[in-house]
Design a protein around this nucleic acid. Structure first.
Lengths: 141, 141
DNA sequence: TTTATTTAAGACAAATGAGTCTTTTAATAT
DNA sequence: ATATTAAAAGACTCATTTGTCTTAAATAAA
């Protein structure tokens, strides 16, 4: 469903949402080790997240990545949009160029329910809300 | 979600289920043109489907691919299993090595419900039933 | 101001997936 | 039997994704 880059991005953002703050920044190395993902690849992903203003960063000693308050209010959906585009939710599951309720492919009804449900959740849940759930329920990253 | 090979496979199988019979075989060329997919790539896919006994084939003049009666009774799921494996339905949506109801990732609940629905349908609907729906509702391939 | 630290940027390499082409094998019509 | 036809097999190329590495830029501590 999601690309590896996108999966790492989601996990990294939630990691920062749980473990960082403007006073307590985290470096690539620590994140990569905790999430068990390739360090340099993660670095690129964090850079893209930073460029897209989904996370914050400062260079130099005691620098690192962190979630500013405004970063936390963004819906989860934005992360996915930045990496895989919203096509993961909207494009035809069989790859047909046109596929809609009026002109559906054989799997349209089945697939629509699945993806639309997930999409709705990610649109309406902020990173902050998601991170709170991670903390409360001790979910894994 | 599905690989291109898998998408082409699903479409090709349903195409054969609608347009072929033991008396009326169809060649790669015709299928590729009707479905608008790369001919040689489709050839490989049809060969795999044939090896896995999801479709039938005969070589030589008047040969081609077709659905035998036993092919039609197979659940849709088998096609996907053959190409992408059942991991597309069961593996963690964030790529975590372990992710279950007891030990869930942050997206587990959201992803599970909807994906399970799609999986259930494909497990319990035969190629024949799906093809009948394609004919009746004039669905696109 | 110099040095150490950490992100930013981008070139590069490896792995995988998608797609093409050629040769072999089997079936059938003549 | 032979020629023809169409699938089977597999080598090969191309594109994309994943992952690595090196250098530059910025920040802050000494």
């Amino acid at each position: 469903m999601f690309s590896k880059a996108c999966k790492y991005a989601i996990r990294a953002v939630l990691y920062l949402a749980v473990h960082s703050s403007p006073e307590n920044k985290v470096g690539v190395k620590a994140i990569a080790e905790d999430l068990q993902v390739p360090k340099h690849f993660l670095a690129k992903i964090l850079q893209q997240l930073s460029r897209d203003q989904l996370i914050s960063s400062v260079k130099g000693p005691n620098g690192g990545f962190y979630m500013a308050d405004e970063n936390l209010n963004v819906p989860m959906e934005k992360i996915i949009k930045s990496f895989d585009g919203m096509e993961v939710f909207t494009s035809c599951i069989l790859g047909l160029p046109v596929c809609s309720a009026e002109n559906p492919c054989p799997l349209h009804v089945q697939a629509f329910a699945y993806r639309e449900g997930l999409y709705y959740q990610l649109q309406h849940q902020s990173i902050r809300e998601m991170a709170d759930r991670v903390k409360l329920q001790e979910l894994k990253l």
